[in-house]
């Protein structure tokens, strides 16, 4: 049994320790724990194409309450490298990969970014829910509105938007500037989109506003809801017949450019065949001395 003064001293020590711990905790939280508002921006850039918070599953699961469902260490490891975690045989990761066939890509997040994202998700997306919903209007509610969108979208109009035959109303560039699909002769800066809908579903239509390097372009010049619906209808149609995709015109362009060089070389060597001597020639004609 302790006497009163020593008890008081013990209590004082306890208080001191606890407040020091809290102080340290606050300090470290302030310095090291994630910043939810930075997380909100990151979520929009890196996650919103496949995940929602509280608006249902898309390519990946709805992340509402994910920080309560899984412990932080698991989430950190997962966000660092999903494929490695599945390969390591983690039972939860395995289950996730079975339920959602598209393996989450390694997003190359830094530890700070991971902390920010976890902090954001811990708030259930409260800080940025509105803006992320606004950024993905129409598609955020995709599961519920899928039926109406499907009937509204026209694959033909979608194809015209894709190739650039019809321009996007807000001035965004046509898909074909960078993508090809169904052998329509589009670009190769981005991947061929013929069968993308089969793998990723309706979420692909949110990618222009969510994924770099399209994100800055299409967040300034967003697609309208009806354009999104038309594009989805087009992608559904192409995914149904994925054999239409073609290798692209690389061989043809390469052949053409080599042919062009040879042809141009032939033309100039004919046209310019007397270029250097032509001026002097009349002046010295007949002498033969300066003739080349």
């Amino acid at each position: 049994m302790l006497n009163a003064p020593s008890r008081r001293r013990a209590r004082f020590k306890q208080v001191l320790l606890v407040s020091a711990a809290i102080g340290l905790g606050v300090f470290t939280t302030g310095t090291w724990a994630g910043d939810a508002s930075a997380g909100a921006t990151l979520f929009k850039q890196k996650c919103a194409a496949c995940h929602t918070i509280g608006q249902g599953d898309r390519v990946g699961p709805d992340l509402k309450g994910i920080t309560k469902e899984r412990d932080e260490a698991w989430l950190k490891e997962w966000l660092k490298d999903p494929a490695a975690m599945i390969a390591s045989g983690d039972p939860v990761a395995k289950k996730v990969s079975e339920k959602y066939p598209m393996t989450m890509p390694n997003l190359g997040l830094s530890d700070q970014q991971i902390d920010d994202l976890i902090a954001y998700m811990a708030q259930d997306g409260a800080a940025g829910a509105q803006s992320s919903a606004a950024g993905a209007t129409g598609s955020a509610a995709a599961p519920a509105a899928a039926a109406t969108e499907e009937s509204a979208g026209s694959a033909d109009k979608g194809e015209q938007l894709f190739t650039g035959e019809t321009s996007f109303r807000n001035g965004g560039p046509s898909c074909a500037a960078c993508h090809s699909a169904a052998g329509l002769g589009g670009g190769s800066m981005g991947p061929d989109l013929t069968s993308t809908h089969g793998r990723l579903g309706d979420a692909i239509v949110t990618w222009p506003e969510a994924m770099a390097p399209m994100q800055p372009i299409f967040s300034a010049k967003p697609l309208t809801d009806s354009e999104k619906a038309d594009l989805l209808a087009f992608f559904k149609a192409t995914a149904a017949d994925p054999n239409q995709s073609s290798g692209g015109p690389v061989g043809m362009l390469l052949g053409l450019s080599i042919l062009g060089v040879v042809a141009l070389g032939a033309i100039v060597s004919f046209v310019w065949r007397r270029r250097i001597i032509a001026v002097r020639e009349p002046m010295v004609s007949g002498t033969g001395r300066w003739r080349r």
Partner: peptide, 21 residues
């Protein structure tokens, strides 16, 4: 430039909406 315009088509188009801005 040659390799880019051959393999990352179509440079003439994506230049307008990304590089120019």
């Amino acid at each position: 430039g040659f390799v880019i315009s051959l393999s990352y088509r179509w440079g003439g188009e994506w230049f307008v909406s990304s590089t120019a801005p």
